[in-house]
């Protein structure tokens, strides 16, 4: 709680500057990986998601003082929040990804597809 005394008198705390630069760098790396790296898509997704998580943790620790005692540290509920978030997202994707075998070939179709098929039948 006494960290506000640790920094120099110049006004800009070192911790914030480090956090800021790191987040800029991480963003640029993610953008680069996406556009320029030419890696396979699953790899890109995995890498940029990891980068996003790192950056989020950075924000929480460096800017939001999550580890600050109040009078006990407050990360318990946020961690549980992230656990539920993971369950919601991963669970929904997993549970909802069935019976969609024709989605990929047909994803542009929508309502138009039906009428095409009808035309076939009429001759």
């Amino acid at each position: 709680m006494s960290e506000h005394t640790e920094h120099s008198e110049s006004g800009i705390p070192v911790k914030h500057v480090i956090g800021f630069i790191a987040s800029i760098v991480l963003t640029l790396v993610a953008a680069y990986t996406t556009v320029m790296s030419g890696l396979p898509v699953p790899w890109i997704i995995a890498i940029i998601m990891i980068l996003a998580v790192i950056q989020a943790v950075l924000q929480l620790v460096m800017f939001m003082h999550i580890a600050e005692k109040n009078p006990i540290p407050q990360y318990g509920n946020i961690l549980f929040g992230f656990f539920i978030a993971a369950v919601v997202i991963a669970g929904s994707i997993w549970v909802m990804s069935f019976g969609m075998s024709d989605m990929d070939m047909d994803s542009g179709g929508g309502s138009g597809g039906g009428s095409e098929e009808m035309d076939h039948s009429e001759h």
Binding site: M100, D102, M103, D106, S107, G109, G110, S111, G112, G113, G114, E116, E117, M118, H120, S121
Partner: peptide, 17 residues
Amino acid sequence: LEYVDFGMNSGRSYITD
């Protein structure tokens, strides 16, 4: 099934159209 297959993504908005 000759006109529409509701089991396909293409058949889903047949009835609303």
